[in-house]
Design a protein around this nucleic acid. Structure first.
Ligand code: FES
Ligand code: FES
Lengths: 146, 146
DNA sequence: CTAAATCGTAATAAACGAAGTTACATGAAG
DNA sequence: CTTCATGTAACTTCGTTTATTACGATTTAG
């Protein structure tokens, strides 16, 4: 299955924006992330709808973070993206008439539900501020080495 | 979204085979599961390679369970299927040169690794025997109602 | 007012992977 | 030898994600 990488993408974009503190255009973000400006606008548009970033049109337009880095978590971003399906594995048939399938689905669904709960919980504990701090640690270590 | 449903499929097939105790042909299994005999053979072939079932050709050929129902877990089946990717969400770029992306990937990978560990752990605790017992409970309840 | 820059969005194509299908070879039973 | 069933390769179909093209709408500068 083709994996949805939008969460990874928007995180990358947001951290760049957090570093840079200035407006960034979708073209700049696209070049930086090796993708297309339209893809950036489409994805960032979902974050704007959730109030996490703002966009402005015209010359001197672009994108800016609109939320508190301490408050925004990976889970907020996941939700802003429409809570895409997490698992690439699933039941063959969601509405089974067959009792065998019901027993199978019950077992699988329980396990998946628990794993999903754990993942979302982990997401909820990571803020953009923490990620930014992590980046700065790596950056300092990187400069120290060279 | 197109999800890998082979685990669900083989479970269904195995429980049917456990009930029926006799050889079943890929054609029978395919009819029962609303799919194609070749798909059944392809998928069950992986289980055969793992020693979980046996297959016989020719007239009076077919498929049979070759393992102890008490010992085979969902995790064994997942492994027999080649440990397919579990998540439909992932990093944009697995080998990033950029430090921002490294920070993002580290955070996401950690969360996904924990969720995967939990899921596989849950899988390891469910044996075919337990599923079969669960089915029989449902079946008894079903007959009681009608 | 005009021109340039930028977002907003629809429509379409490309890329990819899972499942389904066709076709035929291989081997076992009678 | 004939029949039945598996083994497998090749191809098609389908759904999803990402990329691309195209153009309209809005804002700023001069
Ligand atoms: S690509 Fe992450 S540094 Fe710009
Ligand atoms: S489809 Fe045969 S009962 Fe599950």
């Amino acid at each position: 299955m083709k994996r949805d990488s939008r969460l990874s993408s928007v995180l990358h974009a947001l951290l760049h924006m957090a570093e840079q503190k200035e407006l960034m255009t979708s073209e700049q973000l696209a070049i930086c992330m090796c993708t297309n400006p339209v893809v950036v606008r489409r994805t960032m548009g979902l974050l704007r709808d959730a109030g996490l970033v703002t966009s402005a049109r015209g010359p001197s337009g672009g994108w800016m973070i609109a939320a508190d880095l301490e408050k925004v978590t990976l889970r907020d971003l996941h939700e802003a993206l429409g809570e895409p399906a997490i698992f690439a594995i699933g039941n063959r048939n969601e509405s089974p008439g067959c009792l065998v399938e019901q027993a199978v689905n019950a077992a699988l669904d329980g396990a998946f539900a628990d794993a999903e709960a754990l993942l979302l919980d982990r997401f909820a504990k990571v803020t953009l501020a923490k990620l930014s701090a992590d980046f700065n640690r790596r950056h300092a270590a990187h400069r120290a080495r060279s």
